[in-house]
C-alpha cells in the first residue's frame, strides 16, 4: 500500500516540435525524459519503507547500481497493454521501425522480451511497485557499507511480496519465485542499456543532462 502511494506520477516526453525527426532527436528526447524520471525515482526511493534509514552512502550506491533497472521496469510496465511497442511515455510510443532509425533496435527487442514475460504473467501494479523496490534493494552494488541493513531491506520487501501473493494468488504458490526470476533479464537488459548510452555519450552528438550523465558515469 505504501509503495503504491509512493509511485511517481506519469512523465511526458515532449519531443521538441522544432527539431526535424532524426536519430539524434529521438535519443535527445529519451535522455531528457530519463533525466526527469530519475529525479522522481530518487524521491520515490526515499519513500520505500526502510530505505531512508540506510546510511546516505548506501542509498547512493543502491541507486547508482539500479537506476537503469528502475527506468526500464517502468517502461516495461507501461508497455504491457501495447503489443510490440514501447511506451516510454504516454506521448512517446516507439515501435520497431522507430527504434531501428534511432539505433535502438537491439535494446527495443530485449525490453520487449521483458514486457512479454510480464504480460504472460499478467503482472499487477502491486507486484510491479514491489518488484521495482526489490530491484533497487537487490542491485548488488560493490560499495555497500552496511550489508546487514541492506539485507534487512531486501528481506522486508521480499516479505511484502510473499504476503501479497499469499493473499491474492493462492492458486500459484510459486508466483513470487516467478517474479523474482524475471530480475536476471532486467539486470541484463539494464546493463545493455547503460553500455549503449555510454557509447552515445562518447560520440558526443546527443545532449545529456547532468544527473543522467552522473549516473551513467557512476556505473563505469
Amino acid at each position: 500500500t505504501l509503495l503504491l502511494g509512493a509511485e511517481p506520477e506519469k512523465v511526458c516526453a515532449m519531443p521538441d516540435p522544432a527539431l526535424p525527426d532524426s536519430d539524434i532527436k529521438a535519443l535527445t528526447t529519451l535522455c531528457d525524459l530519463a533525466d526527469r524520471e530519475l529525479v522522481l525515482n530518487i524521491s520515490w526511493a526515499k519513500h520505500i519503507p526502510g530505505f531512508s534509514s540506510l546510511c546516505l552512502s548506501d542509498q547512493m550506491s543502491l541507486l547508482q547500481s539500479a537506476w537503469m533497472e528502475i527506468l526500464i521496469l517502468r517502461v516495461a510496465f507501461r508497455s504491457l497493454l501495447c503489443e510490440d511497442k514501447l511506451v516510454f511515455a504516454e506521448d512517446y510510443i516507439m515501435d520497431a521501425e522507430q527504434a531501428k532509425s534511432a539505433g535502438l533496435l537491439e535494446l527495443h527487442k530485449v525490453i520487449l522480451q521483458l514486457v512479454r514475460r510480464y504480460r504472460s504473467m499478467r503482472l499487477e501494479r502491486e507486484e510491479f511497485v514491489t518488484l521495482k523496490a526489490i530491484a533497487l534493494a537487490n542491485s548488488d552494488s560493490m560499495h555497500i557499507e552496511d550489508v546487514e541493513a541492506v539485507q534487512g531491506l531486501q528481506d522486508s520487501l521480499h516479505e511484502a511480496l510473499l504476503d501479497y501473493e499469499c493473499v491474492h494468488h493462492r492458486e500459484d504458490p510459486r508466483r513470487t519465485g516467478k517474479l523474482i526470476m524475471t530480475l536476471p533479464l532486467l539486470r541484463q537488459t539494464s546493463a545493455k542499456a547503460v553500455q549503449h548510452f555510454c557509447s552515445i555519450k562518447q560520440d558526443g552528438r546527443v545532449p545529456m543532462h547532468k544527473l543522467f550523465l552522473e549516473l551513467l558515469e557512476a556505473n563505469v
Binding site: 529525479v39 530518487i42 524521491s43 531512508s52 546516505l56 541507486l63 544527473l211 552522473e214 549516473l215
Partner: peptide, 15 residues
C-alpha cells in the same frame, strides 16, 4: 562523493 553531487543533494533534500 564530489563526483556524485546531484544524487547526493537530491537524496538529502527530498527527505
Amino acid at each position: 562523493k564530489e563526483k556524485h553531487k546531484i544524487l547526493h543533494r537530491l537524496l538529502q533534500n527530498s527527505s
